[in-house]
Design a protein around this nucleic acid. Sequence first.
DNA 1: CCAAAGTGTCATAGC
DNA 2: GGGCTATGACACTTT
Length: 659
Amino acid sequence: MQLAKKYFTEGLIQFTILLSLIGVRVDVDGYLNGYFPPLFDVNLGPSSAYAQTPFHSLRDNLDGYSVHPKCPELDYFFAARRLLDEVRTLGSPRFPTQLDAWLVHQVADSDQSDPGDSGSGRIDLDLDLEVGGAADNNANNNNDDGKHLQEGCQATGPCTSGACQFPTEVGVDPHVRDEYVCLSGEEERASPSQLAQSSSLEQEDLLDGNAALSDPAAEPHAAAVNQHWSNFLSLPITDLDDLDSLVTERLSDLDPDITGAISQDVSLRDAVVAGTQAYGRVPPRAEARLVARQHSTPLLLMEATNSSHLDSSSGMTLGLAGPFASGYNITRNGTSHDAIGGCLDEAVFEQINLLGLGGMDAIDSHLLNCLESIDPRLLEDLDSDSGLSLESGSQGPASPGTSVVSSSSSSYCEDERGATGYSSEVDSIHSKGITEYSPVWSLEDLSDSVWHDHSYSSPALFHQPSVTSFPHKGIKEEPLSGDEEEDTGLDSREMSRDEMRARALRIPFTALQIVNMPVDEFLEVLEAHGFSADQVTLLRDIRRRGKNKLAAQNCRKRKLDAITGLQGEVTRLQAQRNRLLREKQLTAKTMGAVGHQIKQLSRDVLSRLRDGSGRPLNPERYTLQCGANGRVSVQPVRRPAVSTTAGSKTDKRKKDKKQ
DNA sequence: CCAAAGTGTCATAGC
DNA sequence: GGGCTATGACACTTT
């Protein structure tokens, strides 16, 4: 697994470096931030990042719980971010070009494209799949490729590829975008309310990005955009409230077919399919899977449903998100062999191939060879090297009757059984596997995927009390009866203490069975089997400890969730505090200005008034007072009664002396 | 080797 | 009263 991760990350590095060298800023970080919000923002709303696993999607979508940092799938997230950070530290040139351009490649109006502006940073991408059906003519589409890319690049408006005209780099970092100060470049199309709500940036990013991307005449309008931008910056603060309408108006001016652009059912996966077919390197299974993905939901729809329920087939059809989506699909579907192969060679290396960079083929083939040489069973554990040693790795892919459980556990499905506060939406995901078990214990079955390796065994047979097996670690699937003493040497190292005790006392149940039995059945078993006192005690202890272990796991998860939620709350409150402080400063400035104006007006009015003797009123001695009825009157300024207070003080001293 | 994190277990409270 | 869950505390293991 470590090997797989190594090659996975190396492939990402190479791919990213390559794109950076040719002038494309591969802002996976932006993607990840956009589509996978940071942990601390989890309770700002549901997010797709945490919907990758059933467990977290349960909490996020149903109970508002947030992901805890141990989620093994988040390894991809952090690994990708770390890789991007490393690449950026290399000092590669960063151009405003974003991969958003890949996504709306068919939107731009070709009439307004200017092929001459593509420049050295031109990317030869075959994205015209829906129209051109470029599955078999990848090499012949260079002209068209460039054209389409230029369309896409120009459609990005201020962000043009290669020949980027705009010097301002516009990141899509949601951490920064909630600050008004960071409004620049593309941010024109975001309203302040949007900017202030980082929790909803995932969908807004997409919409915003496509709004600008779909501007076909961005470069000719660069000056106009700059003018709009300067107009925006020159807006008085009081006009900020109108910014939403202003931005909406601008968006409507950009491209009337934004939604159509977004809903074009042409994703990068289409390009990947074409490329892989052209290069003929995708295994048939992976190819079929990719073809099936061509029918994935449109981009916008996917984003809309991503936060609530991530469809595994839809995954992430976004540019660089593809590899990660595949990675997540590994964990969700348990088909890691396909997923790993597809993850790397389809989504990463095929994109490199599509770039027409033959120099990378050697690297690709090397990595691919290494990857293909990896045992798929090892790759299956790609996401399970977190602190939790899940049952999935121990069961092995070939465990009879446990494949579903294995796949579910590989996605860190955790138990959630009996976890108050967590609902078991896992049913919807693993319902097929569950229906294979006893319907009475369907919920208990879910907990089996959680069991840790020093714990209890697979549930495949646990509701068959007459059959005692230890499928744990794959080796334990041998029946206990008969030669149980023989295999204790190996099993004792991998069994829990309770398992060993139960085996020593010849208790014909696995610990999992004992724990997950309904209490009535447990009592019935105690009576029916005529256990000795020691056996009964052990059975009760096993049951108690097992349940308490689950309870402890749930408790810790809740604690982590609470911590994560509180951290998010702190972040949110800090942002709110900063906003309020800014408002306070602004209000103070406004009040000062208004006071100054009032003072000036008072002086002006008083200088025009005359007293009884015909002399002008001294502004130092008189002031204007506005009554409740709106009547303005001239009143003398009340001097602070210094002598009075002094007198009161002396009086007080006198009183003190008398006392 | 050490520290931190993870995990299992016990005791206890509350339902 | 028994069963169960939640949780703090502790010890041990893993990273």
